[in-house]
Amino acid sequence: MQRICVIGGSRYFGKLLVQRLQAAGHQVTVINRGSAPPPAGVEHLVADRNDEAALTAALGSHTFDVVVDQVCYTPVQAAIAVRAFAGRTRRYVMTSTIEVYDPATAALPAVPSGTPVPEEIVDPATWLVAMDLPWHDDAYLQAHYAEGKRQAEAVFARTGGFGFAGVRSAHVLGGGAQEFTGRLAHYAGRITRGEEITVHAKALPTVFIHHEELADLLLWAAAADFTGPVNACSDGPLDAYDLAAVVARQAGREAVYRTVTAGEEASPFSLDRHYAMSNARAKELGFSFSHTTDWLPGAVDEALTTEPSPTA
């Protein structure tokens, strides 16, 4: 049994993670703003992680073996966490994102198209951190999501106060209405209604992970002792056409496509640049991934169930 703190953990795969940690016999503490209570038997500390004084006060004399941070988006938030958890934990796991590899958001080393992107392409130990950017501005943060995650990883990687691991998650699907980004629902809805899926002329593949598999990986990462970034994605990249084909097959309808013009926004997961991740490091460390085609039809069925049927 370990004492494990989860920051966030009130929805989607974070909620599943809390349940899995508890089922595995760990002593679990959840820190969030109080919007949703954790399961019975899980300690709940209410604090805004952006308020350092409030966070420190809520922690009191608590110490943990591991902290799993589900909701860190900026270097400012990371720096607050570093100070608040100094001397309180031996290990810190942050949920990061595939978006850190997006070449449209940063100058990154080139990777040949079709080659799965390894973790070392973005090294948090060497990434420039700029605390003075307007990270507290929601519009700025939304437009600089990938950079915020890169810099947050960099702050943790340089602390030296605890072992740090960054889990760079692929695009998360599954769970029907729980999948709050609505990206799979976009495909389910448009194909069900006979509406166009907008795609790039040459849509490049990306990688995905089921929300339950990501919860399992975070559970594994919390108990492991590796440090540094690790990519989390199921085997089997898909492009927008592949994804739409699965949705169309499950819906019993035909997918209709329209190629976007230069600069026009396309459907989610239609990419005109390459940054599909490699999951080789996680496998070498001992985690076994499913194949995307193992779970995608079921995830599509969930999305179709929550999508209203087309009118006659």
Rank of each mutant, 00 (worst) to 15 (best):
I98D: 03
T74W: 10
D65V: 06
L285F: 14
S35M: 12
D225V: 05
T74G: 12
R193N: 05
W220H: 12
A157Q: 07
L184V: 12
A125P: 00
D48Q: 12
V167F: 02
A251N: 09
H171A: 14
Y140I: 08
Y145Q: 09
A79E: 09
Y101L: 10
G286N: 12
D48V: 14
A223G: 06
T115E: 15
S290V: 06
L173P: 02
A170G: 07
G298E: 01
E254K: 13
L214P: 00
F13M: 08
R158Y: 07
D123L: 08
T198N: 03
P237Q: 09
A185M: 12
L304V: 01
A170T: 06
L21T: 07
A188K: 08
V247S: 05
M131G: 10
N231I: 04
I7P: 00
P39N: 14
G34Y: 01
G194E: 04
F64W: 05
E254Y: 03
V230W: 03
Q250A: 01
G166S: 15
Y101D: 05
T95V: 15
L271V: 05
H44S: 04
P124I: 13
R91I: 07
M94N: 03
H44M: 02
A170I: 06
D294N: 06
E254M: 11
P205I: 11
A266W: 02
F164H: 13
E147Q: 15
R3V: 03
C5Y: 03
P75I: 09
A40F: 12
E43V: 14
V6I: 13
Y241G: 07
A221Y: 04
A266V: 00
G166R: 11
V100I: 09
L243Y: 00
V68E: 04
E43L: 15
H274A: 01
T115A: 14
Q2H: 00
G148L: 00
L304E: 01
P103A: 11
G189M: 12
P310L: 14
Y257C: 10
R11V: 13
D69N: 08
G161K: 04
A215R: 04
Y275I: 02
E265M: 08
W295Y: 03
A40H: 11
S234V: 00
E307Q: 14
R3F: 04
M277D: 11
F13C: 06
Y257H: 10
V68C: 09
W220G: 09
E196M: 12
F287Y: 05
V122T: 02
P75M: 12
A262I: 10
G166E: 07
G148N: 00
